[in-house]
């Protein structure tokens, strides 16, 4: 008996993006939320510690 065969969709190659994009978006959101505060603190510390 002959059987038709097919390959799975090529879109499965893109599934890592379904994981990477939410993680990157979460990282960007956290950075957008906390980086300004951290940046000002870091700027003060750097002004104290760094010499020209």
């Amino acid at each position: 008996m002959s059987r038709n065969v097919s390959r799975p969709s090529r879109l499965f190659w893109l599934t890592p993006l379904l994981v990477a994009l939410p993680l990157l978006a979460a990282a960007c959101a956290v950075a957008a939320l906390y980086w300004p505060k951290l940046c000002s603190l870091l700027s003060v510390v750097m002004k104290l510690v760094v010499t020209s």
């Binding site: 599934t15 994981v19 990477a20 990157l24």
Partner: peptide, 18 residues
Amino acid sequence: AGTALAGAALTVLGLTAL
């Protein structure tokens, strides 16, 4: 499992680029 591994790699590369 492959999605998780490759997704983690893309995230690491993306974060490094950003």
